[in-house]
Design a protein around this nucleic acid. Sequence first.
DNA 1: TATGAATGAGTTTTCATTCAT
DNA 2: CATGAATGAAAACTCATTCAT
Lengths: 202, 202, 202, 202
Amino acid sequence: MKGTMDNKRDLIFKATEKIIATKGIQGLSMQQIAQEAGVAAGTIYRYFTDKEELISELRKDVLRVVASHILENCEEGTLEQRFKRVWFNIVNFGRQRTHANLSYEQYIHLPGIDTSPHQAFERSTFEGLHHIFAEGRDAGIFHNLQDKTLFATSLEPAIALGRSIRRGQMQYDKTELEFVCNLCWQSILTPPNTTHKEQSGR
Amino acid sequence: MKGTMDNKRDLIFKATEKIIATKGIQGLSMQQIAQEAGVAAGTIYRYFTDKEELISELRKDVLRVVASHILENCEEGTLEQRFKRVWFNIVNFGRQRTHANLSYEQYIHLPGIDTSPHQAFERSTFEGLHHIFAEGRDAGIFHNLQDKTLFATSLEPAIALGRSIRRGQMQYDKTELEFVCNLCWQSILTPPNTTHKEQSGR
Amino acid sequence: MKGTMDNKRDLIFKATEKIIATKGIQGLSMQQIAQEAGVAAGTIYRYFTDKEELISELRKDVLRVVASHILENCEEGTLEQRFKRVWFNIVNFGRQRTHANLSYEQYIHLPGIDTSPHQAFERSTFEGLHHIFAEGRDAGIFHNLQDKTLFATSLEPAIALGRSIRRGQMQYDKTELEFVCNLCWQSILTPPNTTHKEQSGR
Amino acid sequence: MKGTMDNKRDLIFKATEKIIATKGIQGLSMQQIAQEAGVAAGTIYRYFTDKEELISELRKDVLRVVASHILENCEEGTLEQRFKRVWFNIVNFGRQRTHANLSYEQYIHLPGIDTSPHQAFERSTFEGLHHIFAEGRDAGIFHNLQDKTLFATSLEPAIALGRSIRRGQMQYDKTELEFVCNLCWQSILTPPNTTHKEQSGR
DNA sequence: TATGAATGAGTTTTCATTCAT
DNA sequence: CATGAATGAAAACTCATTCAT
């Protein structure tokens, strides 16, 4: 892990990510980061103006990593294939005990979430997901609901499942997951042979 | 649990909750709590051995409050009525910008989640929800999936929707919510006239 | 010196004054102040928000002390008596190796001197001196020059002499000082029997 | 002394002088100097063993510059002409907002003033002034007072006036200055037709 | 010579906790 | 019981100085 990068900025980044993932943002001191990164405390300040900027930069980075994992391989195949690939990307990323994932969960539910880096993440994530949701909605395959609602209904379960598996609160069971993935897919589909009059606009 | 009798203790509790909700757990000092509560800093130590215990006690309290809100009025009516009442309880609680809710979200995604107070919360919540899920599953109305999975599939969307509304990322639209609530309900139902052989046990 | 005041704020004040007088403002650390004052480092921050405020408050205080010394007993007697009393007040205060005097000299020639505390000092000093200068000017005894100019001409020498004596660059010689004091007094007097046409307004 | 040949050294000198003049000696870091001088931080250590030496060397240089300005053209003409030229040199140099002048004022009132560079400055300045004072004193034109006293009486006012003008505390008024210059000149003169028995030797 | 990244001791500041009143 | 001044250890941050390039 530390082999590929010999530049200090990355070392500091990875060290911080690791500590946040392990001990939480609360127990995060610059000395600790320096020690974990194997640099002097003062060195951190050559790369980040202060602790706040370090955390903020790391947040951006983590969000980018998460977005890229979630949106991997979601541009080929049928709508269903793409949706399910994303669904499993979410579960599989969430299952991992990686520093990126663990620190992501710390960041995401912190106050000050309505600030630009997070907004940018939401946008970039939904950029990819928007295509899927828009396509299905335009084709009349999905319910005529806003993206956020479709996401909450069909993909939030994937997040929760990944987390529960990671925490050991449930067993990883590929067959069950495929069944649930299908439920999620079905749940946002309009009934095939029904002319359902939707009530809410995009 | 002790009600409004133990005045100072409650003041400290409320003050802490407010600060966490407002500025996050990170920016939380004992002097701040004391000032917000209108007591002396030393007074806090008459009610809590140290900061850790204060936070831990508050966590328990918050979780209790959340559980009670979510499970309100979920013991009468048909299975569907009870499920949908819980679903809306979750959305409506999540929508609120109350200190309880905001500090809950801080607590719930923190490291050290596998500790006793959270376990107790999980148990008490699922105690209530278990009845619903078990009843539906036993009657063959719900898919034969473990509670966690049913929860993730049908109730996590409610959590996400409440949060999104609170954050102003989507509009509150009662009709849409009722539609989505129904989708969530449908998603865990076994197809009415199919004898589907479920693949995974409770 | 430390007997009369047992309150910490004053202890910190005196300690800071002493260190500035001894080692200069440059070598002034909060730890040092704390040690010299016999309090914990953190205690300083109960009385001053930060180092800057401490220094700024001390500056105000020192200026007040200096002003009061210079203006001592300058309200009784003839104009000449009052002027000469001020003149000697300046020399005698400047001669002293007191912390107040030594730190005053540090402060007075620092950048940021045009700020309010210093302005206030100038005003309060000149308030007292203004009476003397105005009286002499109005009576046609002094040259019709602005206060600053009269001050520079007749009292700056006193400052310089006090400093030189303190630094051991010249001997303290009461007779000589009285002679020079008289020169200073004479220098701003209009020639007794000459109708000198002054060129500059107050 | 080494002129503009030793380029880097001069750049560092000028940069330091500028920062001291602008922000004071307190806010003076080696990195700042390096940046202002356009050299690397390490380069400074090729020309000066450490910060102390840099400041000390600069002090010497500044004092030399000041001395040369003050003593400019003071070797020709009558005693009065020479005195008044020095007097105006002092005012005019003090009026300037040059780095040399501003950093000079910082240096001159610092602790550790009794050290060699300052002594050398005093000597070189008084070397020039001594001629004037000695000549006047020997000819019985000046009061029989030591140089320091004559300086304080007749030239300190010039320093104060220059400073006050620079600080905007008074207007520059050539006529007024000439008048005051004359007062200063007069103040150290023995009364023309009096055989005053002076009381203190040089 | 010159560089500038890196250092780490030192500085300012914060804050959980104690204790005399 | 309650207070809040005081503590001092630890945190964030600075900066003179070094050294591999």
